[in-house]
Structures are given as C-alpha cells and as structure tokens.
Amino acid sequence: MKLDFFVNEEAVTLETQPQRRLLDILREDLGLTGTKEGCSEGECGACTVLLDDLAVHSCLTLAAQLQGRRVTTIEGLEKNGELDILQRCFVEEIAIQCGFCTTGMIMSAKALLLQNPHPTPEEIRTALSGNLCRCSGYVQIVKAVSRAADEMGGRV
C-alpha cells in the first residue's frame, strides 16, 4: 500500500505492507532507532510514540492504521539542537540509567503533559504505568516529569 503520513511534522510517503508495524517503519525504513523494542507485545512501553498526540505502542500499530495521521517520536522532541524540557529534566534529575525504557517513558510523559499540564505525582505514576523500568524505582523519573511540568508552567 501507499502510505502517506507525518513523522515529526514532516510528510512521509512510503510503499509498504499494510500489516507492517509502525515500530519497524520507524526503525528500519526511516532509521529512527530512538524508539525501542522491548517486548513486542504492548507490555513494556519502550516503543511508545505519539499518534495524533496520544501515547500508543508502535509495536501494536500497523501501517493500515496510519494513513494521514501524525506520529511523533523521541527524535521529534529536540528542537534546533536543544533538548525538550522533559528530556533535559530526565537528564538533570538522574532519571536515566540503561536508557532502554527512557525514550518510551519520555513519550508517555509528553502525552501526559499535553493533556494535563499540572499532574500530581499519582497522575504521573498512572500515566507511566505502561512503561516498565527495571533499573530504577521510578523515583527520579516521577521527579523529572514533575519538574518538567513546573518548568513549562502550563505551556506545552
């Protein structure tokens, strides 16, 4: 099928299979390897991207669901060589260890802040409930999202 959609605000046209996963399109066809594959079954959240500003699993999304839609990946957050506030807060709050969950975690956090610019710690934990981190106890991650929300002051 011919697929027309948007990735990180750029129009992309691809000839692909309808049952090709968004994850494979991003990683293999577009070279956007920041999106990670951790479980291939929608349980770990490492492959999280935004689809029309909502967090979804790219491993459970097929080309047949993408026509005309907007995908945002971790690579789309950095603007003009400057990290997004969320990315910077993850770095500064020491919320990153092995990093394999990080990009998915940041995308889930991004989706949260787009909908709810002033989340409570409980709301942050719920928003990240589908993103597993094995290195940490989520303490710094929750702190990083909280601080990013404060720094953004409601802007997203």
Partner: peptide, 21 residues
C-alpha cells in the same frame, strides 16, 4: 557529587546506539 551518567543526553535524545540499532 551527583552527575548525570555519561550518555544520559544521548539516551534522552534517542540517539544512543544499542546493538539492535
């Protein structure tokens, strides 16, 4: 003194390359 790890920035940006990449 606490420091972010050496590749924290690359990991946050999604640029750090793992073997599968």
């Amino acid at each position: 003194v606490s420091h972010p790890i050496q590749d924290a920035r690359g990991k946050a940006a999604g640029r750090t390359r793992y073997a599968a990449d």
